[in-house]
Amino acid sequence: MNAVPIISVDGVSKQFGASYSLMRRLAGEPPLAVHALNNVSFEVHRGETLGIVGESGCGKSTLARCLVRLLDPDGGAIRFEGRDISTLRSAERRAFNKRVQMIFQDPYGSLNPRMTVSQVLNEALSVHRMRPKGDIPARITELLDLVRLPHDAASRYPHEFSGGQRQRIGIARALAVEPDVIVADELVSALDVSVQAQVINLLLRLQEELHLTLIFVAHDLRLVRHISHRVAVMYLGQIMEIGPSESLFASPRHPYSKALLDAAPELDPTQRSRVVAARGELPSPLDVPPGCPFASRCSHVFDRCRVERPALTKRASEHSAACHLVDFGAMPSALADAV
């Protein structure tokens, strides 16, 4: 995995202005801003699935939108195959838009209700001139097979499908242009669990078959853990921990990852706990504390945490965390030696 990353995110920040209240103006205070992304850095390797997980408002969707250039960061850079995507112009930008596809959460909102499935796919195929006109019908059939929709789906309208089937149409549309990267934001969150599992299986299979790079954004840790090779855990616009899925969740190196894991409802009724995983509430994104963003809820907090923001530093190969307790979650040294 040491090859050049397909995507690299380097110190990316994004703010949204809140309304500038008269009170604040009169008091001479600066306008409030939501720091949706705060100095976020990571790399995505070709062919992997990178999961991005975190609670509501932590900046997952903002990050996803920056990755496909639906939003421009205020600071830092996002590089695709080494090129800063904010510098891409005309033909290059179109090529980027084709190679990096986003699939949206809302299967209802993102499909035009007046277009049949075949028209939706046809549009995607023609915009990027993917196939000569004559080959399009055959390609549509191929795409429907790929996402396991019946062939007669082509002539039907989105409202005639179930939620899971509509999600498949969205996936087929994204695949039509043969992208290298798919960014999926809460792709299955609105679906029933049994249907979620169908779509997850489909993604796992498509990724192997088509060598896709997948960025899977979701708030459900169980789903993210399941599908991802590597996972980034976000909190209040920052990455708290990033590492291989299995090791990150087997022994999290950040107290917040551990809390998320402990709070996730697992399927084993014999492993119950009455201990609350994390006390307190998420701080307002308008008022992020100066030190560690998790300090107000962390049961390991100490003085330094409240004044100094911990940097994301290396814990093991491919594994980093942003916590002043660098040994948090580390295996006892004797054990580590034995491994």
């Binding site: 049994s194 796992l204 399941h226 599908i227 991802s228 697992e266």
Partner: peptide, 13 residues
């Protein structure tokens, strides 16, 4: 429902 310790296996949907 995905379980711990079974990363990237097919779910029995």
């Amino acid at each position: 429902v995905p379980r711990a310790g079974a990363v990237r296996t097919m779910l029995s949907s």
